[in-house]
Computed example of a mutant assay.
Amino acid sequence: MTLTLAATGFSILITIVILFQAALAAGMPWGEYAMGGKFPGRLPAPMRVACLIQIVILALLALIVLSKADILLPGWRELADVAVWFVVAFSVVASVLNLITKSVRERRIWAPVSILMLISSLIVALGG
């Protein structure tokens, strides 16, 4: 039950991040809430493409966690047993970057989200 709850929580949080990245890619003027706040307002085209690439990566991370928790893609389980540690490492880096960003708005919103993603991915990694 704890494993399923942690994987579900991770998936909900990463879905929020994916939706935010999709909004940035579509041109929403929320640049101060991403990428260190370096691009306030609408992101330039290359950064919007980067958002699309991040969406793919984030979706793969979610699938790895869900597979490790035996919720989706049982055929990925062997890969997920190892790859989940990449998810944990990714979450550590995301947490550190969101804690040290110069953008106060980004830090206030995304640091708690990334820390919760770290905790939930670690629970999944250790629980299965």
Rank of each mutant, 00 (worst) to 15 (best):
A83I: 02
A7K: 13
G27I: 14
A50W: 13
R108S: 00
F20M: 05
C51P: 06
I55S: 12
V56R: 05
F20Y: 12
G127V: 06
L19C: 13
L97E: 02
V82S: 08
R48L: 11
I64Q: 12
P74G: 05
K102V: 00
W76G: 02
L52G: 14
R108N: 04
P74N: 04
K102P: 01
S121K: 01
P40Q: 06
I100T: 15
R107H: 06
A111F: 15
L52K: 11
L19M: 15
V88P: 09
N98D: 01
T15K: 09
L97T: 13
A80R: 12
S103M: 05
P74A: 09
T2F: 11
A62L: 05
F39S: 01
I123A: 14
A45R: 08
V87S: 05
S103H: 07
K68I: 00
G9H: 04
A25K: 13
C51T: 01
A7C: 08
S91I: 02
E32Y: 02
L3D: 10
F90S: 10
V113R: 08
S11M: 07
G27Y: 12
P29L: 13
S120A: 15
T101H: 02
R48N: 11
S114K: 03
L73A: 14
L63G: 15
F20L: 07
G31K: 12
G37K: 10
E106G: 10
D81I: 00
V82G: 00
G127C: 03
T15S: 15
P40F: 07
W110Y: 09
S103P: 10
R107L: 01
E78N: 02
R42D: 00
L116Y: 06
R107I: 01
D70L: 09
V92T: 08
L126V: 13
W30H: 08
I55F: 11
P74V: 00
G128N: 14
I115A: 04
K38S: 12
S121L: 10
A125E: 11
I123L: 15
G41W: 11
P44M: 04
P112G: 02
G27L: 12
L126N: 02
L122H: 00
I18K: 05
I18N: 07
E106R: 14
L116I: 01
L122M: 03
L97V: 11
S103I: 01
I57C: 00
G27E: 04
T101V: 06
I109W: 11
L24R: 13
P29D: 05
